[in-house]
Simulated assay, not measured.
Amino acid sequence: MPRLNVGTTAKVRMPATSANLGPGFDSLGIALDWTDEITVEVTESGFEVEVEGESADVVPTDESNLILNAVLRGLEELDASVPGLKLTAYNSIPHGRGLGSSAAAVVGGALAAWKLAHPVQEPDRRRLSLMAVDFEGHADNATACMYGGLTLAWGQYENQAHVMLRVHPRLRVMMFVPETPVSTARARSILPDRVPRADAIDNASRAALLVHAVQDDLGLLWAATADKLHQDYRAELMPESYTLMKSLRSEGYAATLSGAGPSVLVLGSDRHLDALSDVNAEGFRRHALHVGAAAAVI
């Protein structure tokens, strides 16, 4: 196993992502133009982690750091080793808000490992994506982060696959982000193992409609983003977010929980979303966003 030279450096930019988009549970994901950056440098020995920006006071700076572990996993996968590493993370994506921060960390670490091991080769995104999904566990977020745009993922392990969906040129995103995080693991654990057949049928039709709406007919987004599989069950964990989502939907906006929440995502045209600047959403920060690009070595 070749050992990389001290001083070898990789810098990566990774987008925030939102999964589900209502009915597309664990399958649909969208990248946003809201990014984190990391720099990884091979050092003589040991591991050093510095974190700046969002959640800098709570992100681990020891060997349990998620990005560091993703880099090391990636190097092992690529048959490369290092005497030591210094990781510097520049965070702007809030953690625990349903914005794919952990997927960004793992995808960023995987791409950094590739750059360190193969400095002149284009990343094998298929290989790195499979590694990221295996490590992070959420194909919807990880795939959207790795490839950018809007993605549809299915399958598991080596059979995991995806397609990139065309996005209507006027599609925009408004994100309402609360101050208080919610654990993704807790938000998943509250979901039932079984749902009524009628709910499953309704969700399947809405998810299929959503694929059409985001590409060709933004006027169908409200109908296409209705969900019966996960959002109602999560209401007790994030009552303010659920109330905001329902209020926005009652006014005709295509509002959903972002991933497992508690952020609230609204899809629509730029003109339609402009009116959201007047909506009362105390306790939430608003972010007007576009569809984002893929994670990339910079």
Rank of each mutant, 00 (worst) to 15 (best):
Y147V: 06
T8N: 10
H272R: 14
G7F: 07
A144M: 05
E240W: 02
L265W: 00
Q121L: 15
P94D: 05
I298L: 15
S81F: 04
T225V: 12
L289Y: 00
A198S: 13
M1L: 13
T151S: 10
L28D: 00
G98Y: 06
A198Q: 11
F284Q: 09
V106A: 13
A288S: 12
V51Y: 05
A104N: 08
W222S: 01
A132G: 13
Q160Y: 07
P94I: 09
A112P: 04
H168Y: 02
E44L: 07
N141P: 04
L244A: 08
L111M: 08
Q121S: 14
L244E: 11
L218Q: 10
P196T: 02
R249C: 04
M164Q: 12
T151E: 02
Y242S: 15
H272L: 12
R186G: 11
H138K: 13
M164R: 14
A103K: 05
R194Q: 10
D79C: 06
L87A: 10
P83M: 11
A70F: 12
D62G: 10
P169C: 00
R186Y: 03
L220M: 14
L130D: 08
H118T: 08
N141M: 03
T243A: 15
V12Y: 06
L150T: 05
S55K: 06
L218F: 07
N5Q: 13
T39F: 02
R271E: 15
T35K: 02
A153S: 15
G96Y: 08
F135N: 07
L191P: 01
A112L: 06
T88W: 12
P123Q: 04
D278S: 14
P239N: 13
Y253E: 06
A198L: 07
A70H: 12
G261W: 01
